[in-house]
Design a protein around this nucleic acid. Sequence first.
DNA 1: CACAATTCAATTGCCCACAACTAAATGGCC
DNA 2: GGCCATTTAGTTGTGGGCAATTGAATTGTG
Lengths: 157, 157
Amino acid sequence: MTTTPAASPTNDWLRLDQQICFSLNAASRAFGGVYRVILKDLGLTYPQYLVMLVLWEHGELPVKKLGEHLRLDSGTLSPLLKRLETAGLVRRERSVRDERSVEVRLTDEGVALRERAVEVPRRILGATGFDLDEIRALRERLDQLTGALDSATLDEA
Amino acid sequence: MTTTPAASPTNDWLRLDQQICFSLNAASRAFGGVYRVILKDLGLTYPQYLVMLVLWEHGELPVKKLGEHLRLDSGTLSPLLKRLETAGLVRRERSVRDERSVEVRLTDEGVALRERAVEVPRRILGATGFDLDEIRALRERLDQLTGALDSATLDEA
DNA sequence: CACAATTCAATTGCCCACAACTAAATGGCC
DNA sequence: GGCCATTTAGTTGTGGGCAATTGAATTGTG
């Protein structure tokens, strides 16, 4: 029973190794592996590290804003922030100005963790084998791709 | 540990918008959104679609081989394959030659689904706004990156 | 002021990813 | 043949991502 494995050129469209998204996905998960090793010392997962980056950069901000920076919704952020709070890195407090909103801010411990995180990007860069210019070029390409895909998603909806 | 560019530029290293991995992650999730819309008609999620691609290309094969093609382990594949089996697209059967192994093969329905899947890559390509050469170049770049990251992960371990 | 629409966080439910472990089968080796 | 390391799927537990829903607070409008 041989269900004719792709023989004709037209079938190449469905070949796994031609799918850009697979390469993207694989790269994303490969990064996950590297970050897992490097962030273990800090007690952070990669998405938690991203949240900390935003907080280190912007100081306190509501969950909504955090989500906009990271393209994540409350369904992802709420449990993640609880774990960061349990770890003692952030506090969550209802805004007094708008009680629908929850302000997320760093604890002293969360602020202090930044000192140990500054070396992470350099170690990641080393793991990629790329130089800064190559990284920047790739990043711009990917951001362009993300923009196009987001527009396309809206069009379909 | 040489002193990198002095005090203030050091801050830039931790800026979210400079992290290649964030761009990668965002692009990967943006793809997820597009695939979710396009694959809804086929009743597949994106990882399930990847599994079907491999099966369409190679015919039946054991879970182990499937995992090697997709860089996924049994912890991910086992429940996923159960869902595909429930959906009537694949069958799982213990190999008679090696009873540790489980052969995954397409049902007639699974084979038939291929006809409706052939248009998916073209629609995805359209959503990216890239042409084939650009896609190929980006894919090669990403595969190169994945290779470097995988090596780095092994080094750390 | 009253009421409808909107905004926001949280929850639920489903699926994916991965580490760690279990259990069974295989194959090599004495 | 009997023992043991290896191979292979499967299970469990933790965490992330997202759609859909809930419920409370706010804002807009008549």
